[in-house]
């Protein structure tokens, strides 16, 4: 994110946003972006309103009413001096300044840090609204349940390299899911052995345990020869997928 905003320069290669070079057209890019730093620092000698009007003036014309609306939605008291605010309330100032000019792209680094659960919900709604208006939200987070909840596409970076970049649904389809099938009588192992996508097959009495990657079609059709009592499947969460990528 800091490279996209031209805070740091690439040692090699280049970055583009909106088809513009991040280095040469940095000012144009920043005009269209709202940014929330991972470790937000505020001007503690100002009130929330003073700081936000100062930042609004740096953008030129913006609809100040919208900033007030956002502050109200996040239950942020703009008249208080920033040094008296809690971490969560300071974070709200950061969120308001990132959202207040309705940018085409929001770059949010750990946006919910310090927010209480209710305000996190409000933030998720703000993200959904931005998305519904056709704007893009690019966020980094280590709270995977949050990513799972609001992201359409995710990327995983390991040791500075992007090792995965895909739609959440695609990743989940590809990921291994645990499957448990209960049969009325015992079933022969060879029926399921070697079926496409089936891994870690284990049969105990009348129960078949396995992991499956991709489509379950072949497995279900094979199982249909027998009397099936119950099938349970555990949806993998992002955390398992993430850990799988790191192990």
């Amino acid at each position: 994110m800091r490279l996209l905003l031209d805070f740091i320069r690439p040692t090699s290669g280049r970055a583009e946003l909106f088809g513009l070079d991040a280095r040469i057209h940095s000012v144009d890019i920043r005009q269209r972006v709202g940014y929330l730093p991972g470790e937000l620092e505020t001007y503690t000698n100002l009130t929330g309103r003073e700081m936000l009007t100062y930042f609004a003036s740096l953008r030129g014309r913006i609809d100040w009413n919208y900033a007030e609306v956002l502050a109200e939605r996040l239950e942020l008291d703009l008249s208080r001096s920033i040094k008296t605010l809690s971490k969560g309330n300071k974070q709200k100032i950061g969120l308001v300044q990132a959202f207040m000019h309705k940018p085409e792209l929001l770059l949010l680094d750990e946006p919910t840090s310090g927010l209480d659960p209710l305000m996190q919900q409000e933030f998720y709604i703000m993200v959904r609204e931005a998305k519904a208006e056709g704007r893009t939200v690019f966020l980094s987070s280590h709270v995977l349940t949050e990513v799972e909840r609001i992201a359409d596409r995710i990327g995983i970076i390991r040791e500075g390299k992007l090792i995965l970049e895909e739609a959440v649904t695609t990743i989940k389809d590809k990921a291994l899911r645990q499957l448990e099938m209960h049969f009325a009588s015992s079933v022969p192992a060879e029926t399921f052995n070697g079926l496409p996508g089936v891994r870690n097959l284990r049969i105990e009495n009348n129960i078949v345990y396995c992991s499956i990657e991709g489509s379950v079609d072949a497995l279900i059709k094979a199982a249909a020869q027998f009397e099936v009592i119950n099938i349970t499947s555990h949806e993998p969460d992002l955390e398992e997928i993430f850990l799988a990528y790191y192990s």
């Binding site: 905003l5 000012v27 920043r30 972006v33 940014y35 730093p37 620092e41 953008r59």
Partner: peptide, 14 residues
Amino acid sequence: ESGTLDLLMSYPLK
């Protein structure tokens, strides 16, 4: 040093 420069520089200013 106080960290506010990051936020300031994310605004459209050279």
